[in-house]
């Protein structure tokens, strides 16, 4: 292992590393456009590029099941939900100059400081750590399913309860308007309390 570590340098990247770097640049650029663009719908669409790029990174890390779950859940449903949210809140289509709040420079300072600190610590800690991607894949469906249903059954079932609770909660929150109309005669009492 130490010999293997000694052989790998940053100046002679392997093919997987070059692919990871290129896809990572695309992902990071899409993420930067997502948080800086002034057009709200474009932000959601660039988020698709960022999340899809991350799915490719998972594939390059041989975690194929998670890559397809990422495509299905994030690109498939979360972005669609976000687009529906933008539509239902009547987000302006086109250039909206007030997409950023006034504390942009404070946010930029915090983010750049956090990025410098994190990148410095991470590169210092894992400079020599080598990730062995040869051999059988670490995240095929068989491996992930076996570990999930052999060692992680109880958290998995608890998660299904959580999802059910979230489903019920989202429905209750979304039905609020009708409940208000039904409880309209009781509204003055609430006002008195306030």
């Amino acid at each position: 292992m130490t010999f293997a570590q000694a052989q790998h340098g940053f100046l002679s990247p392997t093919g997987v590393e070059i692919a990871f770097l290129l896809v990572g640049l695309v992902t990071l650029g899409a993420a930067l456009i997502t948080v800086t663009t002034r057009q709200l719908v474009h932000a959601a669409l660039w988020l698709v590029v960022a999340l899809g790029g991350l799915a490719v990174e998972y594939l390059l890390l041989t975690a194929e099941f998670i890559a397809w779950v990422q495509v299905l859940i994030y690109v498939g449903s979360v972005v669609v939900l976000l687009l529906f949210g933008l539509m239902l809140t009547k987000a302006p289509i086109g250039h909206s100059p007030d997409a950023d709040s006034g504390n942009r420079w404070a946010a930029l300072t915090v983010a750049v400081a956090a990025a410098v600190a994190l990148v410095w610590v991470v590169t210092d800690a894992f400079r020599t750590t080598w990730l062995d991607l040869d051999g059988p894949a670490a995240g095929t469906t068989a491996v992930t399913g076996a570990s999930l249903f052999r060692h992680w059954v109880l958290p998995f079932e608890a998660l299904s309860v959580l999802l059910l609770a979230a489903l019920v909660g989202a429905i209750v929150l979304s039905r609020k308007a009708r409940a208000d109309e039904a409880a309209a005669p009781a509204a003055p009492a609430k006002e008195g309390v306030r």
Binding site: F10, T27, L28, L32, T34, L54, A107, V112, L131
Partner: peptide
Amino acid sequence: MHLAYPAVLSALLFCTGLYG
């Protein structure tokens, strides 16, 4: 692959989200 590549990309993505 060096572990530094995914770790650095993850740190940068996190800070992008923090800025957002």
